[in-house]
Simulated scan of single mutants.
Amino acid sequence: MAEAIEDRHVVAALRPFVRACAPMLDALRESDPFGLRARARKASDGEFVDDGFKEKVIGALTSVKVPGTAAWAGMDIDERCGWWVNRVGRLTALLTSIPGLGGALADRLPVQDTLGAASQGLLLCAIAGEYGVTDVGSRVRLIASVLFERDIDPVLAGGKPADQSAEDSAAAQLTEELTESERAHGKVTVKAVAGTLWRLGRSLWGITEELEKRPRGRFYHRALGLVPVVGAAGDYLGERWGLKQIWKRAHAWLMANSHWASFS
């Protein structure tokens, strides 16, 4: 019989994970994949001769709701969380569903659960950030509650590990591909995002049994996921459903713990 997974095991796995999610989210937030912020800066610097046309360009670009634009600044918490879940969540759900091409065979491996848990944990950190919750311990407790139905003691979640250097090294290793991508290309590529997501998922292998508790779609999503090739579609829809569920659970948890958070 396998040894029972204790809260301390969950915390040990989640602390480096949460710390690595911060640069991952920064990369997704600051990457400006469509060049919208750059174009707006060029327009505002006068690179368009016609002032009327310049104003139209600036207005069109800044009305797009992506981080760093005026439209983003005017969004409330729910709208920003929705952006993370619906825009970034589509990418992470797609990456998570790829193992579903193998149908039932792929489901026998922990690949999808590790990728799915990594995606959901990443989005939970993004949601926590929009609520003003930035400390590692609180995010660990949020993920443990929403994904694993565990109520982790705040002291245990927020306490310094016995080997701080080991945790520092583990967190840095999880984001190596992001660092290399920025160095080589000046931006974060989709390949680097996918590779980092895989590393994040792999870091949770020590608590594999817990990963099965996460929201993974309804029964018909899972049934479709057992079919080779088209299983990817079922897995994608299941992951999208799961992300919406974690958003609801996260909101409930964050509001229930609002006595220490920086929002009302």
Rank of each mutant, 00 (worst) to 15 (best):
R183T: 15
R183N: 11
A184H: 02
A184W: 01
A184T: 07
H185M: 09
H185Q: 14
G186S: 06
G186H: 02
K187I: 15
K187L: 14
V188Q: 14
V188A: 15
V188Y: 06
T189I: 13
T189E: 11
T189F: 04
T189Q: 07
V190A: 07
V190M: 05
V190T: 06
K191S: 10
K191C: 04
K191W: 02
K191Y: 02
A192S: 12
A192Y: 01
A192C: 07
V193W: 03
V193M: 13
V193P: 00
A194F: 05
G195R: 04
T196L: 03
T196F: 01
T196E: 01
L197G: 02
L197Q: 03
L197M: 05
W198I: 14
R199K: 14
L200F: 08
L200T: 12
L200E: 06
L200R: 03
L200P: 08
L200Y: 05
L200A: 10
G201A: 12
G201P: 03
R202G: 12
R202A: 14
S203C: 14
S203L: 13
S203A: 15
L204P: 09
L204I: 12
L204C: 09
W205F: 06
W205R: 10
W205G: 13
G206N: 07
G206I: 13
I207C: 04
I207R: 01
I207L: 09
I207E: 01
I207V: 15
T208R: 08
T208I: 13
E209Y: 01
E209R: 10
E210C: 12
E210G: 05
E210R: 10
E210M: 11
E210T: 10
E210W: 05
L211V: 08
L211H: 02
L211I: 08
E212R: 11
E212Q: 09
E212L: 13
E212K: 07
E212D: 08
K213A: 13
K213L: 12
K213I: 08
K213N: 08
K213T: 07
R214V: 14
R214N: 07
R214G: 11
R214E: 10
P215H: 13
P215Y: 09
P215D: 15
P215E: 15
P215K: 15
R216W: 03
R216H: 10
G217Q: 07
G217S: 12
R218G: 07
F219T: 06
F219E: 03
F219I: 11
F219V: 12
F219A: 09
Y220P: 00
Y220N: 11
Y220E: 11
H221R: 13
H221V: 15
R222M: 06
R222Q: 08
R222I: 08
A223V: 14
A223E: 09
A223F: 10
A223G: 06
L224V: 08
L224K: 01
L224H: 02
L224Y: 00
G225S: 07
G225C: 03
G225L: 02
L226H: 06
L226Q: 06
L226Y: 04
L226S: 06
V227Q: 08
V227I: 15
V227T: 12
V227S: 07
P228H: 09
P228M: 10
P228K: 12
P228D: 12
P228E: 11
P228V: 13
P228G: 11
V229M: 09
V230Q: 02
V230M: 02
V230N: 03
V230E: 04
G231V: 00
G231K: 02
G231T: 00
G231H: 01
A232Y: 01
A232G: 03
A233F: 09
A233C: 05
G234F: 03
